[in-house]
């Protein structure tokens, strides 16, 4: 069961009316290394991983939904009052003719989200290495989006999200160590 809380994880602010940034941010909404992929990847892998790391996958997967809501908030704020002309000028004309100002799970290039973005190999080490890679790829994506943006408030929230990738990556790396059973144990050969 999941319980919703009417609150963002981080206070998202946007300082400029710039719908073009929404076009870039969509990458982290419905892209391969975006927050939707992350949430679904971890919560799905829970069912075929040793009990010792199910809690971690549950908690990080749940946090990813909070990040998805932050990205949605950024896109919502950047496009809320954008006219069709502004959407077109921002490169969002293709989006507009299908969705008006509605959000949709696709990447910055308009490719719809697909389950092929995520893997569940059923092998704990393979899955955790996939998760580590996913965190590093999301970290890099946040860097490239920050490179495209001059909005100080938006970049502040994007830095928060990038830092979360660093922490999650460490936790998944620790999970690998736990499964190797080297942690808290003397090495005996």
């Amino acid at each position: 069961m999941w319980i919703y809380e009417k609150k963002l994880q981080y206070p998202v602010k946007v300082s400029t009316c710039n719908p073009m940034l929404a076009k870039f941010l969509i990458e982290q909404y419905g892209g391969a290394d975006g927050e939707l992929s992350a949430a679904l990847r971890y919560l799905n892998q829970r069912y075929s991983i040793p009990d010792r790391v199910i809690g971690l996958l549950t908690d990080i997967g749940t946090e990813e939904f909070a990040h998805l809501e932050m990205i949605a908030t950024m896109i919502y704020k950047l496009t809320k009052d954008a006219t069709p002309e502004q959407m077109k000028a921002a490169g969002l004309g293709d989006h507009y003719v299908n969705h008006d100002n509605g959000l949709f799970y696709h990447n910055a290039a308009g490719a719809p989200w697909t389950a092929t973005y995520i893997q569940a190999k059923g092998d704990p080490i393979a899955d955790l290495y996939e998760d580590i890679a996913a965190e590093e790829k999301a970290r890099a994506t946040y860097q490239w989006i920050i490179n495209m943006s001059d909005d100080p408030d938006l970049n502040d929230a994007l830095r928060f999200l990038r830092e979360r990738e660093i922490v999650h990556s460490l936790r998944f790396r620790e999970a690998v160590e736990i499964l190797k059973e080297e942690k808290d144990k003397k090495r005996i050969f």
């Binding site: 860097q143 920050i146 830095r159 928060f160 990038r162 830092e163 979360r164 660093i166 620790e174 160590e177």
Partner: peptide
């Protein structure tokens, strides 16, 4: 593997930093 007793930020600093743990803080700027 993170050792015990890593130095921490205050709660408000941690929220701003995106992590509670000082050694994990690595902000990115364009």
């Amino acid at each position: 593997f993170q050792p015990n007793n890593f130095p921490q930020f205050t709660p408000m600093e941690a929220l701003r930093a995106g992590t509670l743990w000082k050694p994990l803080y690595d902000p990115y700027y364009n």
